Deep mutational scan, measured.
Amino acid sequence: RRRVRAILPYTKVPDTDEISFLKGDMFIVHNELEDGWMWVTNLRTDEQGLIVEDLVEEVG
């Protein structure tokens, strides 16, 4: 499975499927959606939700 790491922190918009995260958080990518969004699991918090790919980098 594809893994990505947050390069910046992010605070979710209330009442959306987004998740908040810290710089350095690792995610497993489940689905890549339109307009650069990804459905992921945050490995630190075990939370699932949407993040935008501009805020993460690939992990080898």
Rank of each mutant, 00 (worst) to 15 (best):
V29Y: 02
T11Y: 07
M26E: 12
E32Q: 12
V56S: 04
L8Y: 14
E58A: 10
F21G: 00
M26W: 09
I51D: 00
I51P: 00
V56E: 00
L55V: 06
E18Q: 14
T45D: 04
A6R: 01
A6P: 00
L33W: 12
V13D: 09
L50Q: 08
G49D: 00
D46F: 15
E34L: 12
V29W: 02
L8G: 12
D25T: 02
I28T: 09
V13H: 13
I51E: 00
R3P: 05
R5G: 02
G36M: 05
M26K: 06
E58H: 09
Q48D: 09
E57W: 05
P9L: 05
V29P: 01
H30Y: 10
S20C: 04
D46W: 15
P9I: 05
M38P: 00
D46P: 01
D25L: 03
D54I: 10
R44Q: 05
L55C: 09
Y10P: 03
R5D: 01
G60L: 13
E32V: 13
K12Q: 07
E32S: 10
L50C: 11
G36H: 08
Q48F: 11
V13Y: 09
V40F: 00
Q48A: 10
D54V: 10
N42R: 04
E34C: 14
T16W: 03
R44T: 07
V4N: 01
S20W: 02
T41R: 09
I19L: 13
V52F: 15
V4H: 02
T16Y: 02
E34N: 15
D25H: 02
E58M: 07
D25V: 02
H30M: 12
M38E: 01
E32A: 11
E58V: 09
V13I: 13
D15H: 13
I7E: 03
E53K: 15
Q48R: 11
V40I: 02
K12S: 10
W37A: 06
F21S: 01
K23R: 13
W37E: 04
V59W: 12
T11D: 10
V4C: 08
Q48S: 11
L50S: 08
Q48I: 13
R1L: 15
P14R: 08
L22I: 12
I7R: 11
V56Y: 03
R44E: 05
R44V: 04
E18T: 07
D54N: 12
V29F: 03
D35I: 06
D35R: 11
D17N: 13
E32D: 12
R44K: 05
G36C: 06
L33P: 09
V59Q: 07
R3W: 15
I28Y: 08
E53W: 15
K23D: 06
T41K: 07
L50K: 15
F27V: 01
A6C: 04
G60P: 12
R3M: 15
M26G: 04
V52L: 15
P14D: 10
H30Q: 08
D46R: 15
T11K: 09
D54R: 14
V56N: 01
G24V: 02
R1V: 15
Q48P: 05
V29A: 02
D17M: 13
E57L: 07
G24R: 03
N42D: 04
Y10S: 04
